[in-house]
Design a binder for these strands. Sequence first.
DNA 1: TACGTGATCACG
DNA 2: GTGATCACGTAA
Length: 192
Amino acid sequence: MNNILSREFYLREAVDAAKDLLGKKLVTCFSNKITSGIIVETEAYSQWERGCHAFRGKTKRNATLFEEGGIAYVYLCYGVYNLFNAVTNVKGKGEGVLIRALQPLDGLEAMTERSQSEKKITSGPGKLTIAMGIELKHNEMSLQGNKIWIEDAPLIDPKNIQTSERIGLGSAGEDAHLPWRFSIKENKWVSR
DNA sequence: TACGTGATCACG
DNA sequence: GTGATCACGTAA
């Protein structure tokens, strides 16, 4: 298993890492069940814009974002869903990449069981964490460990990358329109 | 397009 | 303490 993305991959700006994460393979291994999927949709967040949790400075919830890149930032959204981010850049920056959608690969059975649903179980940030078994306790966990990791894969051709505005940012003002959502064109697993 | 949902954060 | 605010999903 030597094709796990190195720590260096994450030590740069979230926007760049978000683009390069498309096509990579997110893998989890919980209760001896391997589940994995191709990353087909991401969003970048940076401390200097309002859409980012780290915008107002470090708090108890977002402290993980300020750590060095290469770890997981998991938090509860709307009291219901866990969202999974990969922390990027050097310690103290407060940047990360939200994983919004996956194309299922291995462990489909375990995923459908966890989701208690049949279709589109990984098309959306809240659903994919359920399918992959990612929970709040995995916050701050290394992405080079044996529970959650991301494996390298060839870069996606830029002409197959769809760039658009980010989703669900109500009061981020101007920053809500930053073209920081990246997805693979014509992939049916991309969220609405 | 409406609303449930509950932790978190910025105020008193 | 308390109230407003969400990086969502589903039903309709």
